[in-house]
Design a protein around this nucleic acid. Structure first.
Ligand SMILES: [Mn+2]
Ligand SMILES: [Mn+2]
Ligand SMILES: [Zn+2]
Ligand SMILES: [Zn+2]
Lengths: 154, 154
DNA sequence: TTAAAAGATGCAATCCAATTGCATCTATGG
DNA sequence: CCATAGATGCAATTGGATTGCATCTTTTAA
């Protein structure tokens, strides 16, 4: 099976990724360019959040080419349009994934302390945080679980 | 009152900060240098976690001078020796505070979305995170509450 | 079908936090 | 006071990310 695992457990062939990417870009208002298509296809095809370099490599593997700066700008644009999701981590590298693959809105993340991989966790979460000092106004709680991913455990 | 608010609500004069910094350095095994004293004093005097630049400025204000690279190395050393605590955030800038001021071990953080300030939250916390996919082994949960600090609210 | 206009891209230069190499200096034990 | 392990200062460098600007492409409307 050469398909790529999707959020609903089904698989999505590469041609379907292309179709889906184009659909999503058409729905967003903005131009449908080859750079945006290439980047969004890569993101749609990955369960883990991808770094700039990982996306660049994935695009190259598919025989396409996107300038580094264009890639940064495409990613910014996708995030602005809520087509992608940007995650910060301790290694100071931004990682991105397609919003189409993850739960809408806030969600928790898992970070592998060995390989650095980050995945979004679907499902509800809550936290029992210590009481805030007087005057602090909470807006949003971020939860990251650090540990070992399946490939790095054992 | 010219003292600096400390974790227990009391105030600590600058001379006391110097004394405390020297005590802590003596307890750790390593040389007691003016750079380490200057940095640790600044960290002990701040409730908020401080960036490299903020520490540099605070040291300069006290009429002292520490080379940028030395400051990085002192901070690394303090973290290694568990005298300081390093926090990553979305702006890709490390922030530090004195371990002496915060709860030992894991604790939650508050991040102000307006001024960027980060403070450590004392007290127990727990999270109800979504179930992890098969094979993922959790080790530690990180919680950051984003919102407005007292100065930025209202 | 074509011509503008708005928008996207490529390239070079730049920014900025952080790191590294290396010569020099200094805190500490003897 | 000396010897030396260890710390520091300075210059150069790294690496992710950003900016300026000329050029190219997508889209819209004539
Ligand atoms: Mn996510
Ligand atoms: Mn903390
Ligand atoms: Zn891993
Ligand atoms: Zn604030």
């Amino acid at each position: 099976m050469s398909g790529i695992e999707c959020c609903n457990g089904l698989t999505m062939a590469e041609s379907d990724l292309q179709t889906r990417a184009r659909e999503l870009l058409r729905a967003a208002d903005g131009r449908i360019t080859s750079a945006r298509l290439a980047v969004l296809e890569v993101l749609l095809g990955s369960a883990a959040a991808l770094s700039h370099h990982e996306i660049e490599n994935a695009i190259a593997q598919r025989g396409r080419d996107v300038d580094r700066v264009t890639l940064y700008r495409v990613l910014d644009w996708l995030v602005e349009r809520d087509l992608a999701h940007r995650i910060a981590s301790e290694d100071r590298i931004w990682r991105f994934n397609a919003v189409d693959r993850v739960q809408a809105g806030d969600h928790a993340h898992f970070h592998c302390t060995r390989c650095g991989q980050i995945v979004c966790l679907d499902g509800p979460y809550s936290s029992a945080a210590p009481a805030l000092p007087t005057g602090y106004q909470p807006e949003r709680t971020e939860i990251t679980i650090h540990g070992r991913c399946p490939g790095c455990a054992g």
